[in-house]
Design a binder for these strands. Structure first.
Lengths: 182, 182
DNA sequence: CCCTTTTCACCTAGGTGGTAAGAT
DNA sequence: ATCTTACCACCTAGGTGAAAAGGG
C-alpha cells in the first residue's frame, strides 16, 4: 500500500539546466522487533492494545534494500525546484516475493525514510564521480513503525481525517478535527 | 477528450542507448469545411443524417499548431522499442482558448495525425543538426474528421463496442460484435 | 493472544455516449 | 436544420479502513 502521509520535499540550490534523479529508500532504525503489550483484563477491540511499543527481540533478517525512483526522474533542476516534489506513488509491502517493485519492509520494525538526489553527470567517465554526484537527506521526524494493521486508534483517526480515500469512514467534517480532538 | 482509437506504434531501428523524444501533431488534410446533408423528409434522430460528408466551404482559420509529447519522453531507444508505444493520454479539443495543453482542432474538418521522432543530440551545437535528428512518419489510414457529436451510427457502435469506458452503453458482449454486425 | 491475510463497502479520479438545451 | 455545450448516469481503475477469517 501507499505510504501515508506522503513524503514531500521542497528543493533549492540545484543547477536549473542539469538533469537529476530523485529517489527514496528505507533503512532500519535499530536491530529490534516490536510488539504490543499483553492485556490481562479484557479490552474492547477498538481500544487497540496499549499506546506504546515494547521490544520483542532481535530484528528479522533484513529485507532486500529496494529503492523508489521518483517517476518524473530524470528531470531538470528547474523542473524539480519549481514546486513541491511528492512521493505519493511510493508503495510499501511486507511481501518478500513482491514483483511490483514496491519497497519491502518487515512489519513491526522501525524505519527511517531517506531521500537521495543524484546529479546526472554528462561526462563520459561519470562513474568516477559517483560519490560527489550523490547527496542523501534524512529527516528524523519521518521515522515510523511498519504494521499490517493499525495498533493505535489516534493514528487511524488521523488517517481517516486526512486521507481523501478514507472519506467514507469520517463521521464529521475534517476541518473541525484539530479543534474537536487533541 | 481523448482520441479514440488510440494512436499506437511499434518502433525498430533506434540506438538503444540514445535518448529520443516522441511526439505527435495534426495537420489539415485539405482546405475544406464539411457538413452533413439536409434531409427533406423527416428522419429519426438515431439515423444520424446521411452516411457521407459534403463540402461546406473553405476551412476555418487554422488552429494553433500544438504538439503532444509522449509523456515518457525523453527515454532511451531500448525503452521505446521494447513494447508498443501508445499515445492514449493525447487529448483533443475545439476550444481555441484551451490552457490544458491539449491539441486544438476545428470541428467538421479533416486531419492527418503525424508521428515524430527526435534524437536528443548530446553535442553542444545540437541545434545545427536539428534537421537530421528529426524524422516524421505519416499513416494515411489514421485520417479522420473531427466532430463535437458523432455523425454516423456505426462509428458510435464501434466506439461503444471497443472503448472500455463506454461499457455502460453495450447491449451485448463485444466479443460477439464482429460476427453479428457488418 | 498477537499478528497477517483476504474481502468488502465506500470513497477519489476521471473517461464514455446520451440527452436536452442553446446557438447560429 | 445543423452543430455545440453542459450536464448526467454509468462505467474503469484504484486507494481507504473495517471486519472476518486464518496462522502460529
Amino acid at each position: 500500500r501507499r505510504m501515508f502521509p506522503t513524503f514531500q520535499v521542497k528543493i533549492f540550490g540545484m543547477d536549473p539546466m542539469a538533469d537529476y534523479m530523485l529517489l527514496m529508500d528505507f533503512v532500519p532504525v535499530d536491530d529490534k522487533r516490536y510488539r504490543q503489550v499483553t492485556n490481562t483484563r479484557p479490552v474492547p477491540r477498538y481500544a487497540f492494545h496499549s499506546s506504546s511499543w515494547l521490544v520483542a527481540g532481535k530484528a528479522d533478517p533484513a529485507t532486500p534494500g529496494r529503492v523508489h525512483y521518483h517517476p518524473d526522474s530524470p528531470a531538470k533542476g528547474a523542473q524539480w525546484m519549481k514546486q513541491i516534489v511528492s512521493f505519493d506513488k511510493l508503495k510499501l509491502t511486507n511481501n518478500l516475493l513482491d514483483d511490483n517493485g514496491h519497497i519491502i519492509l518487515n512489519s513491526m520494525h522501525r524505519y527511517q525514510p531517506r531521500f537521495h538526489v543524484v546529479y546526472v553527470d554528462p561526462r563520459k567517465d561519470s562513474e568516477k564521480y559517483a560519490e560527489e554526484n550523490f547527496k542523501t537527506f534524512v529527516f528524523e521526524e519521518t521515522r515510523f513503525t511498519a504494521v499490517t494493521a493499525y495498533q493505535n486508534h489516534r493514528i487511524t483517526q488521523l488517517k481517516i481525517a486526512s486521507n481523501p480515500f478514507a472519506k467514507g469512514f469520517r463521521d464529521c467534517d475534517p476541518e473541525d478535527w484539530p479543534r474537536n480532538h487533541r
